[in-house]
Design a protein around this nucleic acid. Structure first.
Lengths: 209, 209
DNA sequence: AAATACTCACCCTATTAGGGTGATTAATCC
DNA sequence: GGATTAATCACCCTAATAGGGTGAGTATTT
C-alpha cells in the first residue's frame, strides 16, 4: 500500500482553511498534516511536518505568500507548492511561478479539483485554474499585426539580447551599415530613438519575446 | 437551444483523424464539420466550414502546423486553434503558442479530454496536457541559486532592457560609478566581459526573465 | 572576525550609438 | 504597371558608452 500524501495548508481565513482541510483530508490517500494561519507561524515547525505538497495562500499576515515561496523551497526542497488564492493579477501569478510555485489555483476551485491538482503536481504536472492557464498561454502569444518586418524583428530581438550592431552584422552575415539601416527603420516605425525605448515598446506590444 | 460547436480537424494520419472525428462528433453539441489531411488541402475551403475550433496537427505534409497557425488566424480570426500532436519539444510548444495557438494537447489524450478542452477554449481557457503545463510553468521558474545578488540581478535585468549605465543610475537613484561597480561584479561572477554574454548566460541559467 | 552587499571615485581608450541623406535590387500589392 | 515595402549597402558626423584597472567606505550577515 502506498504512503499517504502529506499536505500542509497555509491560509489565514479560518473558514476556508478548515473547510478545505476537512474535504481534502477525507479523500483516500491524502492527509492534511497541519494548517497554519501564516508563513511566520509555519516557519518554526513546518519542517517536522514533512509535507509533500503545500497549499499556500498569497494574502497572508506578515510574510506574504509570494515571498514565502523561496523560503519554503529552501527549507523543503522536495515539497511542491500549490498557490491557492483569490488574487489573479498577472504580476502575482508570474512572480509566484518565477519564485518556484508548481501550480496556481483560484479559490473558487472545488475540493475535488484541488485533490486532483495535488495528484497532478506529484506526477510532475503543472495544475492551473482555467483562467490562469489562459493568462499563461496569452503571455506567450505574439502580436500578429507587428509593424516590423521579419528581419527587423530578428534584429530587434538581437538588440534585446544585448548585442552591438557589429555583433549582429557578424551573426547575420550582413554589413554593419545594413544593420544600421534596419535599426533606423525600426526606430522610425516604433517612433523611438534608443535601444531601451525600442525594447520596452516592443515587449509591451508583444512584438518580441 | 444552443448552436453546435463547429470543429475542423487537420491531421494527416487517417486512423487518428477518423477516430477522433467519430468520437468527438458523437458528443452532444459538437459537430466535426470537416477533416483535412494538410493545411495546404484545407486552405481552399476551410473558410466555408466556419469552424469555432480547429484541431491542428504539427507534423503535416507541405506547410507544417506551426507555420499554418498565423495563416489560419488571419483567415479565421474568431476560431480557436488547438494543437494536437505527438511532438513535445520545448521549442515547438513555445513557437506554437507564440504564433497564436490557444491550447496544446498531446496525442495520447482521450477523446473525452479533447471534448472538454474544446469547451474550455471556447470559455476563454488555455487547455494543456499535464506534461505541457509542466514545461510551461517550468519556463517561468527562476534559478533559486543565483550567484547574483538582488541588486545585481535588478541591474542585469535593466541591461537586458537595453538601458545604458547612466539610464540605470538615474532610474535607481544611484551613482553612475555604482552601476559600473555592480556591472563589473556581475561580469566577474558570470565570467563574461560583455553585455551580450552576460544576458545570454543569465537567460540560459534563468537568472533573469 | 570575515565575507558579502552596496555604495562611490578617478584613471584610461577603443567602440558604439544615433542622426542625416541617399542608392540599388527584389518582391509584393493594388 | 506603378507604387509601396523589404533588404541590402555607403559615407558624412559627434557625443556618449562600454569595458578595464584599482581602490575604498559602510552596513549587514554569518
Amino acid at each position: 500500500m502506498e504512503r499517504n500524501i502529506r499536505i500542509v495548508m497555509i491560509e489565514d481565513d479560518e473558514i476556508i482553511r478548515e473547510g478545505y482541510a476537512l474535504l481534502i483530508g477525507q479523500a483516500d490517500g491524502y492527509i492534511v498534516v497541519k494548517s497554519y494561519v501564516s508563513f511566520d507561524d509555519a516557519v518554526k515547525t513546518i519542517m517536522d511536518d514533512a509535507p509533500d505538497v503545500i497549499l499556500l495562500d498569497i494574502e497572508l499576515p506578515g510574510t506574504n505568500g509570494i515571498a514565502a515561496i523561496p523560503k519554503l523551497k529552501k527549507m523543503l526542497p522536495g515539497a511542491h507548492i500549490l498557490i491557492l488564492t483569490v488574487y489573479e493579477s498577472e504580476k502575482q501569478i508570474f512572480e509566484a511561478l518565477a519564485n518556484g510555485a508548481s501550480g496556481y489555483l483560484t479559490k473558487n476551485t472545488p475540493a475535488a479539483k484541488i485533490i486532483e491538482s495535488i495528484k497532478e503536481v506529484r506526477e510532475g504536472g503543472g495544475p492551473m485554474s482555467v483562467n490562469i492557464a489562459r493568462m499563461v498561454i496569452k503571455s506567450f502569444q505574439r502580436n500578429q499585426e507587428s509593424p516590423l518586418s521579419k528581419r527587423e524583428t530578428q534584429i530587434l530581438e538581437q538588440i534585446a539580447d544585448g548585442k552591438s550592431r557589429s555583433q549582429i552584422a557578424k551573426d547575420l552575415f550582413i554589413d554593419l551599415e545594413t544593420v544600421r539601416s534596419h535599426i533606423k527603420n525600426i526606430y522610425l516605425k516604433l517612433d523611438v530613438n534608443s535601444r531601451a525605448d525600442a525594447i520596452r515598446l516592443a515587449k509591451e506590444n508583444k512584438l518580441i519575446k
